[in-house]
Computed example of a mutant assay.
Amino acid sequence: MPRVLVVDDLAAARQAIVALLALEGFDVRAAASGPEAVDLVREWPPHVVVLDVTMPEHDGFAVAAVLRGLRSTAEAVIVATTGYDIDELKAKGPLENFDALFLKGEDGALLTTLIRTAIVQKGEAA
Rank of each mutant, 00 (worst) to 15 (best):
E75W: 13
V4D: 15
W44T: 04
E57A: 06
V63P: 08
I78R: 04
A74R: 15
A37E: 07
A74Y: 15
D9L: 02
G69A: 04
R42N: 02
E24R: 15
V66W: 07
G83M: 06
E24K: 15
D39F: 11
L95T: 01
G69H: 09
S33G: 10
L10W: 04
P35R: 08
G60R: 10
L20P: 00
A19D: 12
E96I: 01
D107A: 11
T82R: 09
T113Q: 12
A126Q: 09
V18W: 00
F26L: 13
A62K: 04
A80P: 12
E36V: 13
V49R: 06
G123Q: 02
A30G: 09
T54I: 11
G34D: 03
A16R: 03
R42M: 14
A31M: 11
D27H: 15
L20F: 13
A19T: 10
L40P: 02
A118M: 12
I119T: 08
F102K: 08
T81S: 01
R71W: 07
L20G: 05
L101R: 04
A13F: 13
M55T: 06
S72F: 01
V50E: 05
L10P: 00
W44S: 07
V6G: 06
V38P: 02
T82C: 00
L51H: 10
A30K: 02
V77D: 09
L89V: 06
H47I: 00
V49W: 07
L20A: 15
I17D: 06
G34H: 02
A64F: 11
L114Q: 11
L51C: 08
E57S: 05
T73K: 12
S33V: 11
N97K: 05
A32S: 15
V6Q: 01
L111Q: 06
D27P: 14
K92S: 01
P46W: 04
R68C: 07
E36I: 04
L110G: 01
P45F: 05
D85L: 01
M1E: 07
G60E: 09
A109H: 14
L20T: 07
R68Q: 09
